[in-house]
Amino acid sequence: MSFLKRLFRQRTKRVTITICGLDNAGKTTIVRYLVAGEYKSTVPTMGVNREVIDLPNLQMDIFDLGGQLDFRGIWPEINEKSDGLVYVVDASDYIRLDESKEIFYNIINAQINPLIPVLILLNKCDLEERLSRIEFINAFDLPSLGNIKWACFVTSAITGEGIYDAFRWFIDAFQE
């Protein structure tokens, strides 16, 4: 049996995915939700967390990068090799929206391969006081992304809202 499994495994595609965004956006919580299917508390990420998720034909190697300024130095190196980008924004953090936008475009323009799918998550949608999806798409100027394959979903890593749909889109983007 395991021999057969191994035979099949060779057909599975392996993709490296990086999750970026400001610290405290909810990146680690989202990854943990993908694994556990429920909210788990996290500690701030120092350096890189790695998580591997096996799907029928796809193995996702997820790198959750520490968001603090000190760790951003390693982003370009990891992003360069990545096959997909997840960018997480805290929908309730109006103050740092511009900072997040600047970093986002820095990654898009300088760090990643322009052909890879980009999933943008407007996280913490369970909170009352927050940006709506449309406000965010405007503020982030997403339509200006041109030919980049992107999608934007509102999510909550606490209630789980939107997470499956967002990643379903992301997974399907690799299957083509």
């Binding site: 949608c125 999806r133 999608a151 934007c152 939107g162």
Partner: peptide
């Protein structure tokens, strides 16, 4: 999520 469905029935799948 309502917000995701409403705004993009088939979330942006191609560039």
């Amino acid at each position: 999520s309502k917000e995701n469905i409403e705004k993009a029935p088939k979330p942006i799948t191609s560039p």
